[in-house]
Design a protein around this nucleic acid. Sequence first.
DNA 1: GTGGAAGCCAAACAATCGTTTGTTTAAACT
DNA 2: AGTTTAAACAAACGATTGTTTGGCTTCCAC
Lengths: 208, 208
Amino acid sequence: MGFDIKPAQGRRRTAGTAASQRQNNRRHKVLAAAAKLFAAKGLSGTSMRDIASATGMLPGSLYYYFPSKDELFLQVHADAVADIDARVVEALEGVSDPWERLEAAAGAHLEGLLRRDGTVAIVQPHFDDQDPELAQRLRVQRDGYEARFGELVAALPLAQEEDRRLLRLLLLGGLNWATLWVKEGPDRQSPAEIGRAFVGLIRRQVGV
Amino acid sequence: MGFDIKPAQGRRRTAGTAASQRQNNRRHKVLAAAAKLFAAKGLSGTSMRDIASATGMLPGSLYYYFPSKDELFLQVHADAVADIDARVVEALEGVSDPWERLEAAAGAHLEGLLRRDGTVAIVQPHFDDQDPELAQRLRVQRDGYEARFGELVAALPLAQEEDRRLLRLLLLGGLNWATLWVKEGPDRQSPAEIGRAFVGLIRRQVGV
DNA sequence: GTGGAAGCCAAACAATCGTTTGTTTAAACT
DNA sequence: AGTTTAAACAAACGATTGTTTGGCTTCCAC
């Protein structure tokens, strides 16, 4: 079951541009609304009617763009992963020191996660293991991204032997969990600050 | 009908005990099954029928023990928090060094989280903010527990000024997230090992 | 202008949801 | 003994779920 019917793509002629432009606008609008709702209420907590009414459409109309709720969710997830990955790549540009690279990546990662509006904050699981097939497809989407952090951690110069895997998991866990406690408001720490602080706590001598 | 000043307890006959025993058994069975399902599939991902069939009962019968699905979930959540809190308290007994105390607490916390069977692994949010009232009641249940980690972190001797709040959040985030990647099998690291490793990564000098 | 596809609505589908109701069974108390 | 009460079943309630179907527009290509 691959991509049998990819609606309205590769339209011929100039008209296709305008038409698919509007289509993409609509489609993108659905994806944005779905991302917001999925991030806030989960997969089974969000109904197709919720998404439809958030985009000013009717439930059935969504099926013109996406063949099923699961496929819609997978697309949202894929977009989110791609977006956050792009942020990290961009943040790494021009940074050469390994620890600084990790700091930059951590900040970009968290910043991407916190974009609950706009794109998404769904790089995290917790989204209904109900269907094992869906769960696996989601994992595949994430694996590529997480490998990037593996490389960053592998490049770190360490004072002594450490379990680099646990180092990566501690940092990523702390960052992913941060989406649950970072609050809005003026005294809110920026994602970059938090990322730098976390990396610093690991890097430096903290205890006496 | 006057007031019968009846001691709802201290039945002379063993019958009263036996009855409430069976009641508690059944009720506990429901709680256990619900905990397992909620932990695996989330609140909205688990139906009352799922819970009923897992306990060998009919859907309607659950309402003899719990007035609603939300109340059942709250009870499961409360039990989970109490259980993991007790684990942490027990693990702290006889340990006096602040860093060792944090290590012990971290291990016990993770061990409690990983008990997906038996008790639960629901100290974490991600469970449908849908109903704000429910979300708040869940938060209240968790706040008391998390305060314990605040005390442990406050007692740490630090090499220099650090943001103790971020230290706590990094560690707890890493631990909570661990429930998603800790695998079964022979080469699986124990919760205590992971907790000690995480605390060590923060405490020691890691970078060069 | 005519044909036909793109885009969306309107309405309904069967299935499942949380919950309620009335009744039965079995045990316990008097 | 007779009465009460806890515990569960059996069946249905209305609401909501994901999804399907058919038709109505709109607009471009010819």
